[in-house]
């Protein structure tokens, strides 16, 4: 009985903590024509696997340096070091390039200005120029 009540308490506490954090969303330019992307499509674009969008344009991923760690953990469950090692091997002889590194405001501006550009930020930062194509949740 005591065990059950303490377990319930723990869960309520965890929910409270998460709820306080801002939701991370993936955004593209409002005029890009892309309504919504799946988590896999987002992962393929950011990890350099497929960057072709449905309308044939190339997607241009931009890392928001402020939320990079949180983003990759939420997307593929990897630490920034692992992602770095991944890109190191690809850069060694491959042709695929890692995403461009920008701060949040620049990234937002670049996305708003460039069709095909894609980045992630806190939902509260997403303004009318961009459209949320994927919600990564808390």
């Amino acid at each position: 009985m005591r065990l059950r009540s303490s377990l319930l308490g723990l869960i309520l506490f965890a929910c409270g903590t998460l709820a306080r954090a801002e939701e991370l969303v993936v955004v593209m330019a409002a005029g890009s024509g892309v309504e919504q992307l799946s988590r896999e499509e987002v992962a393929n674009i950011f990890l350099g696997r497929f960057r072709q969008l449905t309308d044939g344009r190339r997607a241009l991923p931009i890392d928001n340096q402020s939320f990079k760690e949180e983003f990759y953990r939420k997307l593929v469950g990897r630490s920034p070091a692992e992602i770095g090692a991944y890109w190191a091997q690809l850069k060694f002889s491959g042709r695929t390039q890692p995403p461009e590194q920008e701060d949040e405001s620049r990234a937002l501006a670049k996305v708003a200005a460039t069709p095909g550009a894609i980045t992630y930020l806190e939902r509260s930062k997403a303004d009318s120029r961009v459209r949320v194509v994927l919600e990564l949740g808390h």
Partner: peptide, 13 residues
């Protein structure tokens, strides 16, 4: 390395 090459279909790698 081979799996990364296969993952991104990178023939050069």
């Amino acid at each position: 390395t081979a799996s990364i090459a296969a993952f991104v279909s990178d023939a050069a790698l």
